[in-house]
Design a binder for these strands. Sequence first.
DNA 1: AATGAGTCCAACCGCCGCAGG
DNA 2: GCCTGCGGCGGTTGGACTCAT
Length: 391
Amino acid sequence: MGRPPCCDKSNVNKGLWTAEEDAKILAYVSTHGTGNWTSVPKRAGLKRCGKSCRLRWTNYLRPDLKHESFTPQEEELIVKLHGAIGSRWSIIAAHMPGRTDNDVKNYWNTKLRKKLYEMGIDPVTHKPISQILADCGTMGLPKPSSSSNTTTQYQIPNNTRISCLNRDLRNAFMSKSEPSMIHQNEIPNITTIKPEMETTQDGLWNNPTWNLVAQIQAIKLVAEASKFNNQETIQAHYFNERTPSTLFTNHNEEIQNTAPSPFPCQPSQIQNSHSFNWSDFLLEDAFVPPPQEDFQVFSATESSSNQLSDDIFSPNPQFEFVSGENGSCNGVEEMNSRLITHHDYTEEGYDAMGGQMSDIFGASSDNSFVEAILDRDSEMLWEFPDLVDDP
DNA sequence: AATGAGTCCAACCGCCGCAGG
DNA sequence: GCCTGCGGCGGTTGGACTCAT
């Protein structure tokens, strides 16, 4: 037995709203304000479901809504936030004054997703389609075949189903209007995809735990940032290369203040929005390991009550990380490997559920930040004297 | 001009979390 | 702790509109 209907479905109007109905809603709200939507239809003299009234108000009649087209800056923000948190439209819309979640969702579904496809980017994962196809090949689909000296072509039988795509997206993906990415070659029944994007750090993206860390970090960043309503503030937090960041909960102010943005776009790319490159939104750029001259500081908490981490991969502990560059660390690769494959310390007797990362790295167990980095062999690679002296 | 395909978006639907009783 | 009502959310759809043939 499901929940009973919220209103008498047989006695309510459905479909498009008339100007008269809109006027009644506006008159009602201007007098009584919003709230208690279930009583609105009766009190406003409308034959509508209360839910429908609320939706009409929030998505269309609210005076603070923008009704003009999305700007390139808004496009960038949507793509960037979608890359970070996925289809959490309400959160994304909250960062865009005058836009509703429905606006953003529709715009994504009808324009941006298609645009990313045309760029050779999978809008779900924000990874190059070429890489996804390559991954499919490793799962039993036809393997890539080398067709020239310079490119690799991935062949998909025409009957391969792209079941995750809706009707519009299927149309876009299979459209004949994008010869630069998809074209028929001379082989019958074969669609040849010629990737525009080179494959990326396979070792990272093929590693589910690194993806996990990246996702948790991204969601946390946006969740933290969603505390702000001012778009300029949001953009400063997301896009500035150097920002005093409250996004990171690391205890060390110095590290926070020198933390580069975890997002792929550099400020110049954002500010020169007329010349931005959609490939900037490829997510792997956001979470690749830093260059050798950089190091990363990992901290971890056991905030199992934190729904963000639970949502992603319970019961893993939640990891956060910040990057620093005021030193060098030749052990970055080893460090990443060690973090990602944290079964290596469970084998050493640590409890993967309860052990803190600081335990792993040999720092004091009651701190939630890393004071030192050890390599696989527990050799000291980097130490943070300030932190050790001043926890 | 007629028709069908494609596009877009307002609105609906079902589910979920939360608050209050 | 359970139930109920409400608001919010994300996925989906109906139909108006546009474009190509």
